[in-house]
């Protein structure tokens, strides 16, 4: 560590490193990219959760955010494009004691992987899904995403985007998620808290994190650097916990509604399966994954 002579005798490390694969840092993300900030918040949420981290697994798809799995010191799976959720579904159902987190980007989860999200939420699969929304495809060079708001230029929308974007909290709410929140890379404390809540809750929990992509979204649209985008989040965000998700639509550089929108209880897929088979099959049913798993709490 640095020039602090008076503490040279102390073995002092960034506490967040405990949750990361230190042999893989520095990461690949660009200067000013917000994914690292979201990962930082997640690492702290993990450490604050009190969970047995041997029982927490993270699954990512493909893309810039897809690299997240590789930096977390957990059982981590970097899967195929769009398929983190079905992989995570298999992992969770196979080993119900795991607390399974899907950590991926907006294009991965809602374009190529959209169908899987809808069904995982409908089934209330017991997963925490963190979606880093940077409005673009970063890894491939800044193409239009299902979350790009109307207006900004992307390489495949060279004259500005004319496609309607998804309002992700509304989608998650409509599909039945038990927890829905949106924060930005500006709201680090709230985000870390939401991630902590998400880790400790059951059912399909969804957290959208708005993050700057300075290289392929901000600069292309003359919005400055990463930090300028975070200043925009600071200026234009309105915290509305419990807001109607219908009203959480995002527009180009417009107002951003953030907060915890949904927090409700629904039986998970495994709980439903166990309850139903116990009733339907009686003693011939072999119960599976006691209580639908304890999500790493022991």
């Amino acid at each position: 560590m640095n020039e602090h002579c008076e503490y040279k005798d102390l073995d002092i490390q960034n506490p967040v490193l405990k949750a990361l694969r230190q042999d893989r840092i520095p990461h690949i993300w660009c200067p000013g990219c917000g994914i690292g900030t979201s990962l930082n918040c997640f690492a702290r949420a993990l450490m604050d959760s009190g969970l047995n981290l041997d029982k927490v697994a993270v699954v990512s798809g493909i893309g810039c955010t897809g690299r997240t799995a590789g930096y977390l010191n957990l059982d981590s799976f970097h899967t195929t494009h769009g398929r983190a959720i079905p992989f995570a579904t298999g992992l969770k159902l196979s080993n119900p004691e795991l607390n399974v987190v899907v950590y991926s980007g907006d294009g991965d989860l809602f374009a190529i992987g959209g169908n899987h999200f809808f069904h995982a939420a409908r089934r209330n699969m017991d997963l925490l899904i963190v979606c880093v929304n940077n409005y673009t495809y970063g890894m491939t060079g800044g193409q239009v995403a299902p979350t790009t708001p109307l207006g900004p230029t992307q390489t495949t929308m060279p004259y500005g985007n004319f496609e309607q974007s998804f309002n992700l909290p509304f989608v998650a709410d409509a599909c039945g998620a038990t927890y829905v929140a949106r924060w930005t890379a500006y709201h680090v404390r709230q985000l870390a808290k939401a991630m902590n809540e998400g880790l400790l809750k059951k059912g399909l929990r969804f957290i959208e994190v708005l993050c700057p992509c300075p290289t392929l979204y901000s600069r292309r649209n003359k919005l400055g650097d990463g930090v300028d985008q975070i200043k925009y989040y600071k200026e234009k965000s309105v915290i509305k916990n419990g807001a109607d998700t219908k009203e959480a639509e995002l527009t180009f550089q417009g107002e951003i509604i953030v907060g915890k929108f949904i927090d409700r209880e629904r039986p998970t897929w495994l709980d439903s399966m166990n309850k139903h088979f116990s009733a339907a099959l009686g003693d011939s049913f072999v119960p599976y994954g006691a209580n639908g798993g304890d999500n790493g709490k022991n």
């Binding site: 899967t79 079905p86 298999g90 992992l91 969770k92 196979s94 795991l98």
Partner: peptide
């Protein structure tokens, strides 16, 4: 699952879960 793409990766998650 919702399609064969999902089925063919869900089994792989399950294999790494030990089944």
């Amino acid at each position: 699952m919702e399609d064969e793409i999902a089925s063919s990766i869900a089994i792989q998650g399950a294999a790494w879960g030990g089944k």
